[in-house]
């Protein structure tokens, strides 16, 4: 992906985040969790399509996609997010 394309993709993400922030004034609070998860998925997709991914990031993206497309209850979602945070924390020690 060319730099201009990456810039445009990132601008779309910025727009999504600003629109989400505005929307949350009128929407249920729990939507905020989902918007953050969705924004993460969108960012990871940009990283992947612009050659900034690796095995760890690709796995992370799969897990985030699974997270945002599933209909987990709150407890299951918390556990899933906890598990992801622990994996990232471990990975960060090696980077």
């Amino acid at each position: 992906m060319e730099l201009t394309e990456i810039k445009n993709e990132l601008l779309l993400l910025v727009s999504y985040m600003i629109t989400s922030a505005r929307g949350l004034y009128d929407e249920p609070e729990e939507y905020g969790i989902f918007r953050l998860i969705d924004a993460t998925g969108r960012l990871l997709a940009i990283m992947e399509s612009s050659g900034m991914s690796d095995d760890f990031i690709a796995t992370l993206r799969e897990q985030i996609d699974e997270e945002r497309e599933s209909s987990m209850d709150d407890d299951a979602q918390k556990r899933h997010l906890d598990m992801m945070v622990l994996k990232i924390a471990k990975e960060l020690q090696n980077r």
């Binding site: 601008l11 779309l12 993400l13 727009s15 999504y16 629109t19 989400s20 929307g23 918007r35 969705d38 945002r68 497309e69």
Partner: peptide
Amino acid sequence: IARMRAICPGIVG
């Protein structure tokens, strides 16, 4: 569609 997704946070996927 990509642009609409940027101003419509409810669109997943």
